[in-house]
Structures are given as C-alpha cells and as structure tokens.
Design a protein around this nucleic acid. Sequence first.
DNA 1: CGTCTATTTGAATGTACTCAAAAGCGGTGG
DNA 2: CCACCGCTTTTGAGTACATTCAAATAGACG
Lengths: 194, 194
Amino acid sequence: MNTASFITNIKKTVNLNEEEEKFIQSIFVPLRVKQGEFVERSGEITRYFIHVQSGCLMTYFTDKDALDHVAQFATAGWWTGDLHSITKGVPSIYSTRALADSEVLLLPKNSQEELLTKYPQMERYFRILYQNALVTHLHRIIQGHAEAADERYISFREKYPSLEQYVPLKYIASYLGITPEFLSKIRRRLMENR
Amino acid sequence: MNTASFITNIKKTVNLNEEEEKFIQSIFVPLRVKQGEFVERSGEITRYFIHVQSGCLMTYFTDKDALDHVAQFATAGWWTGDLHSITKGVPSIYSTRALADSEVLLLPKNSQEELLTKYPQMERYFRILYQNALVTHLHRIIQGHAEAADERYISFREKYPSLEQYVPLKYIASYLGITPEFLSKIRRRLMENR
DNA sequence: CGTCTATTTGAATGTACTCAAAAGCGGTGG
DNA sequence: CCACCGCTTTTGAGTACATTCAAATAGACG
C-alpha cells in the first residue's frame, strides 16, 4: 500500500511538484483494518484525518438509547472521520469502523497543519473538498425533508451503486433515517410493482 | 453600509494587511433588500456569494409539489446562497429571500476567484468557513434521524435564539422538516407541561 | 377597521415504528 | 458435506408520530 492513489486524487484538484509529493508521502501513516475493526471510537479525541485507499468504512453516531445512526460511508478515494473533534480537540461523538477489510491512510492533525502552512495549494485542496461535501450534505438534508423514504432509497441506490457490495441493508436504512424493517417493506413493494 | 463588519469577521480567522483590506472592500457589491424580496431565484445561475450584514435571509428549495423546504437562515455575519450553482455554473435549485429588511454584500464569482488566487490566506478563510459549516450540517442530518420533532425544536431554539425575532413559525417548521400545524401542537404541549 | 397571512385546533388518515417471530444466509466445526 | 450458530433480513400485527384537510382564531399592516 502506498500514497500514489491519494496523490492522484489531489492532482485532480491542484498541482503538486516533486518536493510536495515527497512531503505528502512522508506524513501519511498507512493502516490496514479488518472488517469490523474500529479506526476511531466515540469519546476519544480524533487525532487523524482518514483517507480510504480500499475497502469501506462507516462513520456513525450512537444516541442516548444506544441506537446507531450512520453519518457517512467512505470507499476508496474518500475522506472520513470527525472534523469537529479533530479541529476543536474535543471528544468525538462519532465512531468509524471498517465494513470490509480496508486500507486507510491516516493524516495526523499536526501534519495536516504543517501541510497547509507549507503548501498553500493544499488549503485550496481542502477548501474545494469541503465545499463539495457541503453541497452534498445540504442536499441530503433537503432530500430528507422533501422525499418519502422509498424515494430516498431509490436515490441512494442510484447515487452510490458501488456501496451495495459492502453495506448491509440495516446500515443503509440507518443512513436513510429509517428502520431496517421498514426498508425491507419498501424493497418488497419495489419488487412487486415492476 | 460598508464592509467593515465583514473584514472584522475575516480577521477572526486569518490576518489581513492594509492592501488586502482595500482589495476586499473594492470587490464587494453592497445591496439593500426589503422584506420579502429575492436575492437569488431558483432556476438562475448564481453569480454571487452572499454575505449578510444586517437583517435576515432564508434559502429554500421548492419541491415538485411546489412545497418550500428551508435549507438555512442567515443573519448578520453569515454567508448564504447556492454553492453548487455558483461553483459549477449550473442553474440553482434554491431561492434566497429576505425575511426582514436587510443589508447584504455580494461577492461576484470572478472576484472570489481573484481573491483566492491573490491572497492564499483567503483560501484558508473559506476552508475554515466550510469546515465549520460541514460540522453543523452533518450534525443537523444526524439530529434529524436521532431526535423526535419536539426535541429538534427545543434544540433549534437553544441554538438560534436570535432567529425568533425574524422567522415566522412556519419557516422554522420547514427548517425542522415538519408541518406548521404539527409545530403548533408541539408548542402547545411544551407550554402545558411546564 | 378590514384584509391578508400566520397560527391554532380538531378529526381523520397515513407513514413509519415497535415488538415478536420466522426465514435466510454465511461461516465453522464435527 | 451437513448441522448448527449467529447475524441479517423479512413478515405481520398493533401502535405512535406526524400529516392532511377544513375551519376558527389571532396578528400584522395599510
């Protein structure tokens, strides 16, 4: 495992010279996680930005009744983790776990700060990354209000077809904000009507 | 109306020298809008980043049944508008309207690009702005799944007490993803039980 | 004061949830 | 290779949260 795919990813947004590439390669910590293992646990202060190289992770919130709510899935090329915890240094309310054997790159908080200070175009990279994520998140909020559960499920399948191979239905239900039982009933209706 | 309050805002995040301040002042377009007036209309390509100086705006999505869904409110110091439309150059799905007589600063897309290119610390400013917004948006998504409507309403009031003076209840209901009638019933229950 | 819109109220309805149980499915060991 | 175990998914009945529709009341503004 190496950082090549990540550097390819960055280069889609901003340019890097050789020195910058070398620096980036030097600060990422590669990690392999098996299915079910944690990358971050809620309650702890997040120390790493997480970049997925292969496999699939999910980040979720556990509420006062011990019910899990999936915040996001992350497959190859995606960033995940708890931005609030890492930037403000407060305990995280999210946990991140592997849904399949996965390879991830960890970017320690201090290294990211160094990266941003030394190479201003990395500010640009993260600015654009966050800008795009913001659009997606706001769309998800509005969709949650404007569409019924069956429409949200159909949209989800269209938008993230590659996730079906990794993600059990109960977590898709959680991501959509419904119960697994109800998702099952939605799926039956969709099967019967076509 | 001037850009002073906006520059104060930026300086909370990054440093600016005199030249930079002057440039910023030169590129913003001040605009006064009366209650009910549009700043952006859905269907049009957004050309400006919108910064609120005073008053209150709301940005909302109109669905296929002509129902409005409030995406966000913005009072003094906040940015709003449709990031997706302005960055990708596609027609906006959101409209932005004044909930009260307001003063706003418009940052034209081209000027923002120039600002970011000339002054890298402005990349940092927007990176941090978006980073914080991302945390808030994800929290809102999870809250929508983890909490019942009455809890979300209580949280909203605690988080944005200053909005009560501007925002009719029906828009708060929309922001929370419920009907005005149901919000009214929630409010009655809250009154009776304490 | 009258008009317009926002808010409240109530009854009927529907979408989605809870709980309990059965069925399916993948892995493991005999 | 089959039997069993644990976990996921499905099913069904009963329930609750939230919506729809219609109408009354309250508030804001000219």
